[in-house]
Design a protein around this nucleic acid. Structure first.
Lengths: 191, 191
DNA sequence: CGATATGGCTAACGGCGTTAGCCATATCGA
DNA sequence: TCGATATGGCTAACGCCGTTAGCCATATCG
């Protein structure tokens, strides 16, 4: 059952349709936001009727889980790409995090809004996306979590347009990340 | 048909209908989450039918705006209460922020999830709730925003149960806030 | 006393996710 | 080759949702 990952191709036809459905759902999410992702809209895009979707997926939630798994993969790739490009500093990580989230705001919210359906996610997917951050703060998991929370807070507030229009968001990023990053270097006693 | 039974089920003085509706909506939100706040449920609570609600409010959005305004007031009161109790440190502010958010998770999300309907909010309501933080970081608005983002990130991740079950959330709060708070204290004359 | 405003009501619309049940086609075992 | 079965479509419909239209009893007021 555990919904093998998309490219598995182990069994036949169903997997194809299922992948199409997930792909379309993802596209609708990015283009129109969560309200655009309706079973009827997905079906229309595939030239079938909504009830037929249920021959391939159990319910809408399963669709969301698949999108979340995909989002983790995308995010991880973005980070790994950065690492390969030699950008392995905490600041580079922060920049990638922000850029990815702002490029996929609906997907980002989908994957952070609610409790993670960990048992239904392909294993390792969460850890893989988190690894760069954890490594960057190798010394302290608490600092890693603080940094994550800061980045997440900045990103969600920016996505939700909660900063005043004249706010210098770049400056807040710089100041916040510098504070958290520098406080974890034990070599530097203090400032 | 209709009834002279004036005692519906809600009490609390001589509110007009509009206030009753908002009160009930707020209670449903806190007790059952956003999915529990339906026009039919609100109406049922007041022993009327859903369409009658529209004699008092324009639409559901207006209801949400009212709840958001209320949430800001509550939050501001919580902070001011802390100040009067002599807790005016940044750390005390952080603690109050966290406690209030965790006590009203649905309300917190309602007020931070989406763009603020600033033009429809009573004036000053946002500034009042933000004042303690701004004052605590009097020197730097950027630090204030960074601190807010950190607190917001911590709180939303905690509400969404996104930290692993064994995570030491208190510790993350401590290191994060200490880092941001301390980076602004040692008079860094700048910006 | 009559006009008007207020605040209920029922019926209904179009949307949602989802289920039930039907049917054509493809596949496969005997 | 034939029949059973699985697959993946379909329509109809259910019970929700927010919302509108239109009716009507009561209260208020000139």
């Amino acid at each position: 059952m555990s919904t093998s990952s998309a490219t598995g191709g182990v069994e036949g036809g169903i997997e194809d349709r299922r992948d199409q459905i997930i792909t379309v759902a993802g596209r609708l999410l990015e283009e129109q936001g969560p309200d655009g992702v309706t079973m009827r809209a997905i079906a229309a895009e595939l030239d079938i009727r909504a009830p037929s979707l249920y021959k391939h997926i159990a319910d809408k939630r399963e669709l969301e889980v698949a999108l979340i798994a995909d989002a983790f993969r995308q995010q991880a790739e973005a980070f790994e790409e950065a690492a390969q490009a030699g950008e392995d500093t905490i600041e580079a990580f922060a920049a990638r995090y922000r850029v990815w989230a702002l490029e996929h705001p609906h997907l980002y919210r989908l994957m952070t809004d609610r409790p993670l359906p960990r048992s239904e996610l392909p294993e390792g997917v969460e850890a893989r996306a988190a690894r760069p951050l954890v490594e960057a703060f190798a010394g302290s998991i608490d600092h890693a979590r603080a940094a994550w929370a800061f980045a997440h807070g900045m990103v969600t507030l920016e996505i939700a347009e909660r900063f005043p229009p004249d706010a210098d968001i770049d400056a807040a990023w710089r100041v916040g990340f510098a504070a958290i990053a520098s406080s974890t270097k034990p070599a530097i006693p203090n400032r």
